[in-house]
Simulated assay, not measured.
Amino acid sequence: SESVLLPGLINTHHHLYQTLTRAFPPALNKRLFPWLQTLYPVWARLQPEMLSAATELGLSELLLSGCTTVSDHHYLFPEALTEAIDIQVQAASKVGTRVTLTRGSMSLGQDDGGLPPQSTVQSDDAILKDSERLIRQYHDASEGSMVNIALAPCSPFSVTTDLMKQTASLARDHGVRLHTHLAETEDENNFCLKTFGMRPVDYLESVNWMSNDVWLAHGIHFNDDELHRLGRAGVSVCHCPSSNMVL
């Protein structure tokens, strides 16, 4: 039989831990903010073996579709899951997938005007210390390496402005890339206007993220001027039409 050899596909944005809650009935058919608020309390109770299984399962599913390189955006570090990225490194090694694991973060909880519950957020200091540890321990910048680390504050509605700035500085000190969600829904645009007095792209610029070492997830609600500015800065955007149509 004749075969065709193709290069492996690359997935530029995933949440492997969410593999476990894909069919969670209370979260179905909701807009982004209510969907997150329904699932945050469930995710807050994740245990290490659950993340390991989710990572292994998600990567295996992707391999079956021809995807060999995966960027995972993991931003959930409740008390039982502070070693989340270490767990993912081991699971990815077991599956044999090339990965860019992004050390995500949430530091702006409900008590301070953010969206996530307090049980799912960490302090800026704890986040930055762990980010540096993970880069030193796992980031392999060599050609063809199997593990890269990137830094990825979750979104404007779940981290502080200061953390966005300090994360950018830390990433550039170590030569790693930056990633975050941006302009996924109009609710997020409105949150940025209300909280920061500016639209998401202006916010991105204000925290020193308008640069070619940055890639964004979703990026749906930009106007023409913002698209040109992002293009001039060399910012990349990855999005999945089917997931955004759900919202």
Rank of each mutant, 00 (worst) to 15 (best):
residue 231 G to N: 13
residue 166 Q to A: 11
residue 194 K to I: 03
residue 157 F to D: 14
residue 10 I to K: 12
residue 19 T to C: 11
residue 173 D to W: 05
residue 60 S to F: 04
residue 223 N to S: 02
residue 28 L to E: 05
residue 228 H to K: 12
residue 214 V to W: 03
residue 91 A to C: 11
residue 58 G to V: 05
residue 117 P to I: 08
residue 240 C to L: 10
residue 118 Q to D: 08
residue 65 S to L: 07
residue 110 Q to T: 05
residue 131 S to P: 13
residue 151 L to S: 02
residue 135 I to V: 15
residue 49 E to C: 02
residue 154 C to L: 05
residue 135 I to L: 08
residue 172 R to T: 12
residue 133 R to Q: 08
residue 16 L to Q: 09
residue 17 Y to H: 12
residue 34 P to F: 02
residue 33 F to E: 01
residue 87 I to L: 12
residue 45 R to M: 12
residue 125 D to E: 13
residue 23 A to F: 12
residue 182 L to Q: 07
residue 201 V to T: 05
residue 58 G to E: 00
residue 144 G to T: 12
residue 18 Q to H: 14
residue 122 Q to D: 10
residue 104 G to F: 07
residue 25 P to S: 09
residue 140 D to S: 06
residue 153 P to T: 03
residue 6 L to I: 13
residue 8 G to W: 12
residue 98 R to C: 14
residue 191 F to M: 11
residue 242 S to C: 12
residue 155 S to L: 05
residue 141 A to K: 13
residue 52 S to F: 13
residue 149 I to E: 07
residue 165 K to E: 10
residue 107 S to R: 06
residue 204 L to T: 09
residue 70 V to P: 00
residue 202 D to M: 07
residue 215 W to M: 06
residue 16 L to E: 11
residue 60 S to V: 13
residue 178 L to S: 09
residue 176 V to L: 00
residue 212 N to Q: 03
residue 229 R to K: 13
residue 172 R to W: 10
residue 13 H to K: 12
residue 60 S to G: 10
residue 187 D to F: 06
residue 2 E to A: 14
residue 111 D to M: 11
residue 200 P to V: 08
residue 98 R to W: 08
residue 39 L to T: 06
residue 191 F to L: 11
residue 25 P to V: 14
residue 69 T to G: 02
residue 10 I to Q: 07
residue 171 A to H: 01
residue 3 S to H: 09
residue 69 T to P: 00
residue 7 P to I: 01
residue 38 T to E: 10
residue 102 T to C: 14
residue 111 D to S: 15
residue 103 R to L: 01
residue 180 T to I: 08
residue 31 R to E: 14
residue 127 I to L: 09
residue 191 F to N: 09
residue 30 K to W: 07
residue 82 T to Y: 08
residue 203 Y to V: 06
residue 159 V to A: 15
residue 40 Y to W: 10
residue 1 S to I: 15
residue 164 M to L: 02
residue 42 V to G: 09
residue 60 S to H: 10
residue 3 S to F: 14
residue 130 D to C: 09
residue 151 L to E: 02
residue 133 R to T: 05
residue 201 V to K: 01
residue 154 C to E: 04
residue 142 S to M: 10
residue 199 R to M: 12
residue 133 R to D: 11
residue 100 T to Q: 07
residue 210 M to H: 01
residue 210 M to L: 15
residue 56 E to M: 04
residue 229 R to I: 11
residue 220 I to M: 09
residue 106 M to G: 11
residue 158 S to W: 04
residue 180 T to F: 06
residue 150 A to E: 03
residue 74 H to F: 04
residue 55 T to L: 02
residue 204 L to H: 08
residue 120 T to G: 03
residue 92 A to F: 04
residue 133 R to K: 09
residue 172 R to P: 13
residue 152 A to S: 14
residue 59 L to T: 00
residue 181 H to D: 04
residue 165 K to W: 02
residue 129 K to Q: 14
residue 126 A to N: 15
residue 162 D to R: 08
residue 20 L to D: 05
residue 50 M to W: 01
residue 203 Y to F: 15
residue 185 T to K: 06
residue 72 D to Q: 05
residue 209 W to N: 07
residue 160 T to L: 10
residue 83 E to C: 13
residue 39 L to G: 08
residue 61 E to D: 15
residue 93 S to I: 03
residue 25 P to H: 05
residue 2 E to R: 13
residue 244 N to L: 09
residue 200 P to G: 10
residue 232 R to S: 13
residue 59 L to Q: 01
residue 20 L to V: 04
residue 171 A to C: 03
residue 148 N to A: 14
residue 50 M to G: 02
residue 203 Y to E: 06
